[in-house]
């Protein structure tokens, strides 16, 4: 089963290497990992999608907790949450087929962000299922390049996975 973890970490150099290194050396499979800053400059947030049964998840969580730079881990999988991913694709598009492609983009509420002589570049956001479907519908035109951000997620309603404690230096 796949789990989505929201992990708050110190915004220190090397923290990504610590987390990534932990996953690789202990043989855990990361489906995706995205990291960025949060409402607090000293805290970064990682959204990690990890594949494994309950015992794997338990070990992942416990081992992550052992990292001094990891502040808080929330497994949001069983909760109500919103998740999004951004994809950018560069698709082969002769002038003749551009119309079709733009229609597909419309269906997915995607946006054309660049045009080349023989290509269009499209961005699309959504949950994983939508992004997969979008990718699939463009595949037969020939995808020259594709990049996905990995999933980010947030709990619905007033619930939050942020910190309440007071801040600490380094």
């Amino acid at each position: 089963m796949r789990h989505t973890l929201a992990v708050l970490v110190e915004n220190n150099p090397g923290v990504l290497a610590r987390v990534a290194g932990l996953f690789s050396r202990r043989g855990y499979n990361i489906d995706s990992l995205s990291v960025g800053r949060t409402e607090r400059p000293d805290v970064s947030r990682m959204t990690i999608v990890v594949e494994g049964d309950q015992s794997v998840l338990e070990q992942v969580t416990k081992q992550l907790h052992k990292l001094v730079d990891v502040i808080k881990i929330s497994d949001i999988t069983p909760e109500e949450y919103v998740d999004r991913e951004l994809v950018m694709l560069k698709v082969n598009a002769d002038p003749a087929r551009r119309g079709e492609i733009m229609q597909i983009a419309d269906v997915f509420r995607a946006r054309i962000v660049d045009l080349g002589r023989k290509t269009v570049t499209i961005e699309c956001t959504g949950d994983e299922g939508k992004i997969n479907a979008f990718e699939e519908s463009l595949r037969h035109y020939g995808i020259k390049e594709l990049v996905r951000t990995g999933k980010i997620a947030m709990l619905r309603g007033h619930k939050a996975t942020s910190l309440e404690e007071k801040r600490d230096e380094d």
Binding site: P13, G14, A17, R18, G21, L22, R25, K66, V68, D69
Partner: peptide, 12 residues
């Protein structure tokens, strides 16, 4: 970098 997996923590 080298000692990341064999220390509890490290600092540069």
């Amino acid at each position: 970098g080298i000692t990341m997996p064999i220390t509890k923590h490290n600092y540069l």
